[in-house]
Design a protein around this nucleic acid. Structure first.
Lengths: 333, 333
DNA sequence: TTGTAGGCGTTATCAC
DNA sequence: GTGATAACGCCTACAA
């Protein structure tokens, strides 16, 4: 069933059917009515591929997801889901690309999509330079180091860490630890890890408090080891700030196993998803990563970019508020 | 840059260029060489949309993901990633569809994809009947109740639960509890929850041991409540079998909080992802859900179905072995 | 207000 | 072995 058959059944030309479908020109009420009914009865739906070819636009965006490795988090799945839903709301589809040369290349060179969203951007990202050279519309989640003019959506890790340190300091803490993402990510110039470490350093210096910063692998086990290191090196630590979602549970149980009560002995403040923060006991005060909001922002930014190649990409820095769940207290004296 | 320009540059016809690209007919070495070089130099890649229209096939499969809700698990993200990677290996792309009428409909009626993979199938699934009526190729993850002839890939929950009960029974346990997925899912006729409950009932009856079966919401908190219910109603419970990945961590800490040691007081056996089972302390003996394998199996099954509409869809029942990680012991006497 | 016809970029069937 | 050329199904100037 194609547009020609509908036209024949309704006794009109193909263009008239097309215009009824698109609404791009007036069609007399009688014809409109008749054609609509025929379409309805035949259950006809225009072929997306043919439309894409004619219009020069696929109405599809690409989403490059990180490889299925140890760093994947539930947050990321939520983000993927949010992107798919936001796109669907705007009548776009989402084409998934595992982060591999071949698949990614195909998406852009064969024009399978109108634009792409890049997850897990690193400070110097080959894909970004590639897309810029190509003149292909894209938006990154996270920024490259160059604060390029392309569009990006990012969590304000620097601001959040600074604010976190301030809050802990305001409560009276004078010795604070930062639990960062894995060393490996820091080495790969992963923005959040990098900016968090940097901001932590600056904030502690400025507020004149002792700060110890540690990378921690993405596991509960690593969290225990990391905690031990911290306590060994800075035994008077009274507060921990963590951006490592995957090891938060391990950190909490390790604290409990070492007889450190939250928040009486150690205050704990995190940047993580609501779910993660509230699934634990005690619940953890945190800046809740708004995956859905970020997904929507990314889709909107990309669509704007697709529609007008000229104007610079929107930059969205998201800074969710800290929510108090009782894991913070003044240091015991 | 399109195939016509390449043809012009190489001084041949478009069809010859096309045949060099597809290899579907012999082209003289000289021409082949010349054309290949021109393609190379121009950086030409055929337009996927035009190809799809001409071939009548999009080389894309649809993946219908569950709504971004509370039941999403890391396993599911891995599955999505595995599907994307398996598809990429076979030169297919993956189009994501949030589980909504509109988006799903679009994918199939507008022929955006050659076939679809349905996640989270329920026993009576409207989407399945829809696709069967349409004659559209698809594969489900999980089965409907009707054991239809369409293709599916499923974890053998019934077999795994039966085997789990046998193992615990063989160790000497006479009072076993099953921690199932949330009641809500059971009510919605979610296959795994349904089949697990059923198999548990049968296995305990057959082996003449006391079995108590409880649904548990997907949270650590719920796990604690669920454990209390179990211990209240069957205080002599010495072993727990769980298929609820999302509450496993909570179950472990609730046991510890109630002074029940694993495995000395209570043996714990799970069906969950490796990561989940090994992230906890103690590590949990489990049948490790092979998300990657399932993703690949689903893609293969679907591609077979796409290539030959006639033969019945392959049915793949996956039953990973239980891995002992020390959370099992004979009951204390 | 409606119809005609060319074009989107490939593939594949004919001829030569 | 190679080249025209008609599909594929839709959109949209251009005519009427």
């Amino acid at each position: 069933m194609n547009i020609g058959e509908i036209a024949k059944l309704a006794g009109v030309s193909r263009s008239t059917v097309s215009y009824v479908l698109s609404g791009k020109r007036q069609v007399s009420p009688e014809l409109h009515e008749r054609i609509t009914r025929v379409i309805e009865e035949a259950g006809y739906r225009p072929n997306a591929t043919a439309r894409a070819l004619a219009e020069g636009s696929t109405r599809t965006i690409g989403l490059v997801i990180p490889p299925t490795g140890p760093h994947l988090s539930v947050d990321q799945l939520h983000f993927v889901g949010a992107v798919a839903e936001a796109a669907a709301d705007r009548d776009f589809d989402v084409l998934l690309s595992p982060e591999r040369q071949q698949s990614f290349e195909r998406m852009v060179t064969e024009k399978r999509v109108d634009g792409v969203i890049l997850m897990e951007t690193v400070l110097r990202d080959a894909r970004v330079t590639r897309l810029i050279d190509e003149g292909f519309p894209f938006v990154t989640i996270g920024r490259t180091g160059a604060d390029d003019a392309h569009g990006w959506v990012d969590l304000d890790y620097a601001g959040l860490v600074t604010e976190g340190v301030r809050r802990l300091s305001a409560l009276g803490h004078r010795s604070i630890a930062l639990v960062n993402r894995p060393q490996e990510l820091l080495d790969h110039e992963y923005g959040p890890a990098f900016r968090a470490a940097d901001a932590f350093e600056k904030a502690t210096v400025e507020l004149e408090i002792a700060g110890i910063s540690r990378c921690c692998d993405d596991s509960d086990d690593a969290a225990a080891g990391c905690l031990d290191e911290i306590l060994a090196q800075a035994p008077d630590t009274t507060a921990i700030l963590t951006i490592n979602e995957r090891s938060l549970a391990g950190l909490v149980s390790a604290l409990s196993a070492r007889g450190k009560a939250i928040p009486d002995d150690v205050s704990l403040l995190a940047i993580t998803s609501v779910r993660n923060a509230t699934a634990l006991r005690p619940q953890i005060s945190a800046a809740d990563v708004p995956a859905a909001e970020m997904g929507e922002a990314a889709v909107d930014a990309l669509l704007r970019r697709i529609r007008s190649h000229t104007e610079p990409g929107p930059n969205v820095l998201i800074s969710p508020p800290f929510v108090d769940r009782g894991s913070l207290a003044p240091p015991r004296r």
